[in-house]
Design a protein around this nucleic acid. Structure first.
Length: 782
DNA sequence: CAGTGAGCGAGCTTCCGCTTGACTT
């Protein structure tokens, strides 16, 4: 038994530190928080000064038990959890659970896992900082109150039956997306005309040249643009002025969680959760430092190593020592930036993981490299027939510096300024020949919809969420069906071009595809309805500055200037009044929007939220005749659908006619568009539009899928709608939407199962449901 | 994966941050 027990949060870290500290120290991990507020009754005694009730979650019992045993048998316990609010609280919980005295137990911290940092930490232990612990408790309790008081309000006031939720972070994330969508819907596109001119001539040495220049500004109308071109008829063009300016570009800071997620999304197309999963693998295999961090700092040892690597590969002049400072005030900087642990390139098998590793490697190296040096040339070109001038600009890279390795990507995808090339050598007063001048119509664009990564960026700017929660938050708001990630097809749009060539003006119209988007976050109708409701009744919590405001108070608690439960009380009294007021006075939200009157029946048409999602209803249940319903397409929304689009929807279900003697019916079910044929169902392919798809497109799909289905089907009991199917894990029984496992001992071969046996198995499984995984159910007595 | 959608009411759901496995109907 070692004399000293050191407890850290991450097991991977524990291994590394154990090696550094040697055999007198045993280093163990507590796997993050070991206690949390009890779920029943909020886990908070509000009357009693917000006294928290902590419990050890089931999945932490094993770890706690082991730590208890080790702590008992050791001389000294060292608490080495992360140096941030949460880390301090974890240490305090460890004291409570392991019966350690918080006043005497040694607390050590380090921001990097390097030998000097850790040895230094061990030589300078401190005591637990209870102010900081209290700041964390206030944070935890406030989040619990917000989440667990508002969510039930939604259950009461929303007529859609869903597992709705609200929270300080998730609700604001949804709000951002909802508001961006409305901005886009309300956006008024304006067009302008941009002039470009292509010149030819001879350079100083008599060599033929050609280059492009841009017009004096943007013209608001086609008439203005034409007037300008008209003025240029018969003009002479001379170079009036040439300016050469030096410029430079500097590398971006090393990765934090949020910037890594953004770059992996832009450059590799990874979702934030994919990035985190791969980064976790790299971390566990010892290839990178910790991946959940808000710090851009590099350890001194790392900086030295990076310097060596740069000088060895690129030479002395490519190196430039840099220290990056965090822009973000909310950063808690418990770790280093994300960087390779060793600058010698690691071997990573999996190609997706390797791409991420290379991204991290390049970004880290580049961050200690020299600026890129540019030379920007701007030539003004005089037009003899009017007072305007054209501008030609070019950029030459004089020294590549860090660009040799890495260039940060950017979000605004299609407005990419075309890469400026170099200008040919020109001389002042030189005359030029105009080959062609064009005025092209260009359209203004609204702010783009958020991607997962750009949403993370925005949340970080607002100080909302933490590196460990960005990915889960984005998963949650999609799981709750407030937001969905999807592509949007572009639409054709005409634009006009005016051309001046050989002193003649011609006009033409061309078409472009616009508005196409990939993997963007769209709010659902549910997301919009819930956001409107929360904005109306809980505008304090929904305010974009709310988190920043309470964070300041947490900081005051951490520095001993404020008492934690007093702060909570100040928040709670008005907040709880809002809750009670809402419960009492808010109408049940139906999410309804009248569209007009159906011409054929004279009945009202409404778009609204139904049990199964957004839909259109013609007529009401009180009518003698039954109302008619139609489900909205995935891309439509209650807020924007038009009467015409709504009426289109009633074209489903469609009967496409006979295929092998039976009707083929197209409709949209719970899982999307499907074709029904001969009592069986076939999902339509993505590219098939259920409203327009033809029989000869669907027929081959049915023929092909049917044989595949038949091979998987062992038996069908038509009447009872019970199927015996072959799955990748063996045969199973399917009844409606539910699947049941066939116990091995029950049946010899799946083909022998009778209807009665199948029913018995279903009953059995229902009576003894298989054990649930992840969150073990509480309070389920035997 | 069926062509539903009201209303009633029982019984359920829910937060944010720290950490990884265990697990494949």
């Amino acid at each position: 038994m070692a004399k000293n027990l050191v407890i850290v949060e991450s097991p991977a870290k524990a291994k590394t530190i154990e090696k550094i500290l040697g055999k007198d120290f045993e280093v163990k991990s507590c796997f993050g928080h070991i206690r949390d507020l009890e779920k029943d009754d909020m886990g908070i005694d509000i009357e009693n000064n917000f006294k928290p009730k902590y419990v050890i979650p089931d999945d932490k019992e094993k770890v706690v038990k082991e730590l208890k045993k080790l702590a008992k048998d050791t001389d000294e316990v060292w608490l080495a959890t992360d140096e941030d609010r949460e880390g301090e609280a974890i240490s305090w919980h460890l004291c409570e659970v392991l019966n350690l005295d918080p006043k005497t137990t040694k607390r050590i911290v380090f921001h990097e896992i390097t030998k000097p940092a850790i040895e230094n930490a061990v030589q300078h232990p401190r005591k637990l900082d209870m102010d900081r612990v209290n700041a964390q408790q206030a944070r935890r309790i406030l989040d619990r109150i917000v989440g667990f008081e508002i969510s039930p309000v939604l259950w009461r006031k929303m007529s859609m039956r869903n597992s709705l939720s609200a929270g300080r972070v998730q609700s604001v994330a949804v709000r951002l997306i909802v508001e961006r969508e409305r901005e886009i819907n309300a956006f008024q596109t304006v067009s302008t005309f941009k002039v470009e001119a292509w010149f030819t001539g001879k350079d100083i040495n008599g060599k033929s040249i050609s280059f492009k220049a841009e017009g004096p500004g943007k013209f608001k109308t086609a008439e203005d643009a034409e007037k300008f071109l008209q003025e240029c008829v018969g003009a002479a063009y001379t170079v009036k002025d040439i300016q050469v300016k030096p410029g430079k570009k500097s590398p971006a800071a090393p990765f934090t969680t949020s910037t890594l997620q953004q770059e992996a999304s832009r450059k590799l197309g990874y979702s934030v959760s994919k990035t985190m999963l791969l980064a976790q693998k790299l971390y566990e295999s010892g290839n990178i430092t910790y991946m959940r961090t808000d710090s851009v700092n590099l350890s001194d040892t790392a900086i030295t190593e990076i310097e060596k690597a740069i000088k060895a590969s690129f030479g002395e002049k490519y190196h430039q020592h840099r220290k990056f400072k965090n822009k973000n005030e909310s950063a808690q900087e418990a770790h280093e930036a994300i960087r390779p642990t060793y600058m010698e390139n690691a071997t990573v098998e999996d190609s997706d993981t390797r791409k991420l590793y290379e991204l991290i490697w390049k970004r880290t190296i580049a961050s200690q490299m020299a600026d890129a040096e540019l030379e920007k040339t701007i030539a003004k070109i005089d037009i003899s027939t009017n007072h305007d001038e054209l501008t030609a600009s070019g950029e030459v890279l004089k020294f590549d510096g860090f660009l040799k390795v890495y260039l940060e990507g950017h979000d605004d995808e299609d407005e990419t300024e075309e890469q400026e090339g170099s200008l040919p050598p020109l001389a002042v007063k030189q005359s030029l020949d105009l080959r062609e001048m064009k005025a092209t119509e260009r359209f203004s664009r609204p702010a783009p919809r958020y991607t997962e990564a750009s949403l993370v960026k925005k949340l970080e700017e607002l100080g909302i969420g933490r590196p460990s929660t960005y990915a889960p938050t984005i998963t949650t708001i999609q799981k709750r069906n407030y937001v969905e990630k999807r592509d949007k097809e572009g639409v054709k749009r005409d634009f006009r071009i005016l051309i001046l060539k050989a002193d003649k003006i011609s006009k033409l119209t061309e078409a472009e595809n616009t508005g196409a988007e990939k993997s963007k976050l769209f709010p659902t109708d549910l997301g919009m309805i819930v956001t409107d409701f929360l904005n109306q009744y809980f505008n304090n919590v929904m305010d974009y500055g709310f988190t920043a405001k309470i964070e300041e108070e947490f900081d005051e608690i951490a520095s001993g200037k404020k008492v934690w439960n007093k702060m909570l009380k100040e928040f709670y009294s008005p907040f709880h009044k809002d809750v009670e007021n809402t419960l009492e006075n808010a109408e049940r939200v139906k999410g309804e929007r009248p569209l007009g009157v159906d011409a054929a029946s004279g009945k009202p048409v409404v778009a609204r939220m139904g049990r199964y999602g957004p839909m259109i209803q013609i007529g009401s249940v009180e009518d003698e005749e039954k109302p008619r319903f139609a489900k909205l397409k995935a891309t439509q929304s209650i807020e924007t659908i038009s009467m015409e689009e709504a009426m289109e929807l009633f074209k489903l279900p469609r009967n496409l006619g006979l295929f092998e003697g039976t009707d083929v019916i197209i409709n949209i079910g719970r899982f999307g568009p499907y074709a029904q044929h001969d009592k069986k169902f076939y999902s339509l392919k993505k590219e098939m539009d259920p409203y327009t798809v033809e029989l000869d497109e669907v027929a081959p799909l049915i023929a092909e899928k049917r044989t595949a289905k038949d091979e998987r089907t062992i038996k069908i009991f038509e009447k009872e709608k019970i199927q015996i199917l072959k799955g990748p894990y063996g045969p199973y029984i399917k009844q409606g939407l539910k699947n049941y496992k066939i116990p091995k001992e029950k049946i010899e071969t799946a083909a022998d199962i009778t209807l009665e046996e199948a029913k018995a198995i279903i009953e059995d499984v229902k009576a003894n449901p298989p054990k649930k995984k992840a969150p073990p159910r509480k309070k389920k007595a035997e």
